[in-house]
């Protein structure tokens, strides 16, 4: 009893320590974004880094004055949102075809798609860049969206969820007269909310922070997303650390919002409880 209580205490301490470790940079960012610029670097190495003494929203005002923040925010939201939304449809449909439909070459193609998962984007960035240049797509939204809609990992996630759905549901629907596409939208989709939420969150996180590709294919600020914008903000004199941290904080907010929106589905169990007796 005593030993287990001690053990419990130990693990709580360890977990708290870890949590603090991971939260520290975020806390420092938040605190720093509220402080006068000159204090940020001075206090960076001390505990005072976490205390927003003399807090004000001046840095936030500066971000909006010195950059076209709303434009970048719109770009990021539009690009990422389109990738996520279109990706949900395209990848789910592809995964359904792999999981349930019978067609020639299915298994071969599916294995190819799985193999794509281990291909790092950096490996194909350069050829892709030339492709985009030849097509005259640089400095557009479309070039930042199109290459990322179809995604091997999303297909894989959907696939593994669909394959576990009870087949009788689809069979019942087909006897009830629903076409394959109808079955997909009227039966599969509503019963796959956890899968859609997982894919939405994961792909949102991936593409919200994407940096290399937009940096390569855009030069004009009008179509650049937040990660590229914050990088050029670093190099925009005068160097103001408080402003940069405010920019960073603003950039993180949407991520938190999206996560909070979907996390309820993220952990939700499957529809199966109504299937089994």
């Amino acid at each position: 009893m005593k030993a287990s209580r001690l053990g419990r205490l130990g693990s709580y301490l360890a977990l708290t320590g870890l949590a603090l470790l991971f939260l520290a940079p975020l806390a420092m960012m938040l605190a720093g974004s509220l402080k006068p610029n000159e204090r940020v670097l001075v206090e960076a190495g001390t505990l005072a880094a976490f205390l927003p003494v003399g807090a004000s929203l001046d840095n936030y005002a500066a971000v909006f004055e010195r950059t076209d923040f709303l434009r970048f925010l719109f770009n990021s939201v539009f690009i990422t949102g389109t990738i996520v939304a279109a990706g949900l449809i395209v990848n789910a449909l592809a995964a359904y075809a792999f999981a349930r439909l019978q067609w020639r070459g299915r298994d071969l193609l599916f294995n190819l798609v799985l193999a794509l998962m281990i291909l790092p984007f950096e490996a194909i960035a350069v050829p892709l860049f030339y492709g985009a240049s030849i097509l005259g797509l640089r400095d557009t939204y479309i070039v930042q969206i199109l290459p990322f809609i179809a995604n091997a990992f999303s297909i894989y996630l959907f696939y593994s969820f669909f394959i576990g759905l009870p087949r009788e549901l689809e069979e019942a629907a087909s006897l009830d007269g629903a076409s394959t596409l109808r079955i997909f939208f009227a039966v599969i989709v509503p019963n796959s909310k956890p899968a859609f939420a997982s894919v939405a969150i994961l792909s949102f996180l991936t593409w919200w922070g994407s940096y290399l590709w937009p940096l390569l294919v855009t030069i004009v600020p009008e179509v650049r997303p937040l990660p590229v914008a914050i990088a050029s903000f670093y190099t925009l004199p005068p160097l103001q650390w408080g402003d940069i941290l405010a920019f960073g904080t603003l950039m993180v907010m949407p991520v938190l919002a999206v996560f909070l929106m979907f996390q309820r589905w993220f952990v939700r169990g499957v529809a199966s409880s109504a299937i089994k007796g």
Partner: peptide
Amino acid sequence: FQNYALYPH
């Protein structure tokens, strides 16, 4: 069906 296959949603 044996397990009824009602649409859970």
